[in-house]
């Protein structure tokens, strides 16, 4: 268990709802859920969710901290925003799911090896590096996430698509050598670091 997680469970004891309200993006909305289930029925990946958003909201109120934060449910969100526009109580459900996933990830409770968790981290690290996404490096880092052999297998399986994109001028092999970058990269990194420092201090994630 991470130190931040130990401190959080000690601080909030059995009041997981309060923890979510104070530390999870848009968490103060959770108590507004009236359990109608429209979100569950609107999700394109509905059948893949271990617990639907509706169920997660109830589990938060019931204090099911470990079961919520260690679930892979929130990681099924495709950010399509269907649940948001259909929710009769106007809960920002997509953001709450993102917020829960982020909090679980940062506390070290999210499932290890969960593919969207891993990809999301690759994506953020990739964009922060140069201030812009390097699509080629992101794709290769994703294919090779499980090691060299499985990476080669995956990359070979997708080589047809890669060649197609190359021919269409939509993939640049030179991105491997550097690629697009900000001029004021130093300033950009300073902004990201400062923002992260403030957020971590507020959410008990400094460590």
């Amino acid at each position: 268990m991470s130190e931040q997680n130990r401190q959080a469970s000690e601080r909030y004891r059995n009041n997981f709802l309060k923890e979510v309200e104070e530390r999870v993006e848009e968490g103060e909305w959770v108590k507004m859920c009236m359990q109608c289930g429209v979100c569950a029925g609107s999700c394109p990946l509905g059948p893949a969710w271990e617990h639907s958003p509706q169920k997660i909201f109830m589990m938060i109120r019931a204090g099911e901290r470990e079961r919520v934060l260690s679930s892979d449910a929130m990681w099924m969100c495709t950010s399509c925003y269907s649940c948001i526009v259909r929710c009769p109580r106007k809960l920002p459900i997509t953001h709450i799911m993102h917020g829960l996933a982020n909090y679980a990830h940062r506390l070290g409770l999210a499932p290890k090896g969960q593919p969207t968790r891993d990809f999301a981290k690759l994506f953020w690290d990739n964009l922060v590096k140069k201030g812009r996404v390097n699509e080629l490096k992101l794709t290769l880092a994703h294919y090779f996430r499980g090691g060299l052999m499985s990476g080669i297998r995956e990359a070979l399986a997708m080589q047809g698509i890669g060649k197609g994109l190359l021919k269409a001028g939509r993939l640049n092999p030179k991105e491997l050598l550097g690629g697009h970058a900000l001029k004021d990269l130093k300033g950009f990194h300073a902004i990201v670091a400062k923002a992260r420092e403030i957020e971590d201090r507020k959410k008990g994630l400094s460590g």
Binding site: H98, T116, A120, K121, L127, G131, E199
Partner: peptide, 26 residues
């Protein structure tokens, strides 16, 4: 001039809230 990535929707997991808003505000 010198615009940066928006963080996209998938940026939430590592990026959290404030870092995402800050890069957009840049």
């Amino acid at each position: 001039p010198d615009w940066n990535c928006c963080g996209a929707s998938i940026g939430y997991a590592e990026g959290g809230e404030l870092p995402r808003h800050a890069i957009n505000a840049r």
